[in-house]
Amino acid sequence: MKTRKNNIFKEVYSDYYDLIYKRKDYRNECQRILNFLKKKKVNKVLEIGCGTCSHSIILAKENFQIVGIDSSEEMLKVAKKKILHHKVSNIQLIKGNAEKINKFIHEKFDVVLILFNVVGYLSNLESFINKIRNFLNTNSTLIFDFWHQEAIELSGPRKTTKIFKRDDSELERISQGVINSKKKIVEIKVECSIFKNKKFIGKATEVHELRYYCVDYLRKIITKNGFKIEKFEDFKTKNIGPQKKNWSAYCVAKFLG
């Protein structure tokens, strides 16, 4: 999937990223992941698309050995500062494009995490799942969240405007999406305006193309590549399947080797 941005967007967004997602309940999401991993032997975890490492830092405190990869150098700079702040030493960061993962990952893991709808950015999910088989131990676990088709096409995206304040700075973020049901893509335009002491500083724009998925399609391509589906679960509520009112859901699968 494509992401189109102007030159200042990367720096602006990485700088404000954790403020924008301050209300995201990373701790609860990590607890869900730990629940998925109950009674499983886990040591090494690979997080693909780790961003600023909010999930990885929490999981590292559970004594997992974490490797996080992300294509954004700016995000990884923020992640390194957070890792130092939290005094965790069991996270290794790698800069790289997830779809070229075989070029820089050469070890095996007990868990692969793909969170925050990173799968929506992949150009070919089936090909990607086939690649990550090479980095999984037998009986290891794949966990990812995704946007599911029924909810997306039922409710559709809406325009949102949010304002985030920090010290004497302010970020106004406007996002609006359009569905392409034929390609199963949501195209989201994000526009960020930056103010300092109420004075306009500049504007940054970005367009995301995010793919959404039918559960039956995911089941087909995952089982085809040597996995056993353990569950599809609603993102917000435990122990129930994907819901029409929530765009996001989890997939948990066991790699049979």
Rank of each mutant, 00 (worst) to 15 (best):
I132T: 01
I132W: 01
F116A: 13
N63M: 14
N139Y: 13
E62L: 11
S123R: 14
R166V: 06
N134R: 14
T138Y: 11
L115S: 05
S127H: 09
A60D: 00
L122E: 11
L84F: 14
A151R: 13
W147K: 10
K77L: 10
W147V: 00
L142D: 03
Q149M: 10
N130W: 11
E99R: 13
D110C: 02
N97C: 06
T161Q: 14
L93I: 08
H106N: 13
F164W: 05
A60R: 05
I143K: 04
L84C: 11
Q65Y: 03
D167V: 11
L142E: 05
G120M: 05
I143S: 01
S123F: 09
D145P: 01
K95C: 04
A79W: 08
R133T: 15
N124W: 07
D70G: 04
D168C: 01
D145R: 03
K87F: 06
N130Y: 14
K95S: 04
L93D: 07
S155N: 15
L136T: 03
C50S: 08
F144H: 04
I132R: 05
I152K: 09
E74H: 08
S56M: 03
L125E: 11
F128V: 00
S155F: 12
I132M: 05
I66Y: 02
F64L: 08
K165T: 12
Q92V: 09
E74M: 01
E107Y: 11
H148R: 10
L93M: 08
K82P: 00
N102H: 15
A151E: 09
H148E: 08
N134T: 09
D168R: 07
N139W: 09
Y121I: 06
R133V: 11
T141S: 04
S123V: 12
V111Q: 01
L93V: 07
W147R: 11
E153F: 01
K82N: 06
K81T: 01
S89F: 12
C53Q: 06
S127N: 11
F164G: 03
K95Y: 03
K100I: 10
E99Q: 15
V88H: 12
L122F: 14
I69H: 00
H86Y: 15
K108T: 05
V112P: 02
K159Q: 09
I129M: 02
D145M: 04
I163M: 07
I66N: 03
G120L: 03
S123Y: 12
K87S: 14
I83N: 08
S123I: 13
L93S: 09
V78C: 07
I57R: 02
R158A: 07
S127R: 12
F144S: 03
I163C: 04
K108V: 04
Y121F: 13
I94Y: 12
L125K: 15
G120D: 05
Q149C: 09
Q149A: 13
A79L: 06
I132E: 00
F144E: 06
N134K: 15
L125S: 14
C53S: 14
L76V: 06
S89L: 10
K165V: 11
S123L: 14
I143C: 02
S72G: 02
I94Q: 12
K80Q: 15
E62G: 02
F144R: 02
S123W: 10
S72W: 08
S71G: 12
E107I: 10
N124R: 08
K81R: 11
E99D: 10
D167E: 15
N130T: 13
L122W: 10
L142A: 05
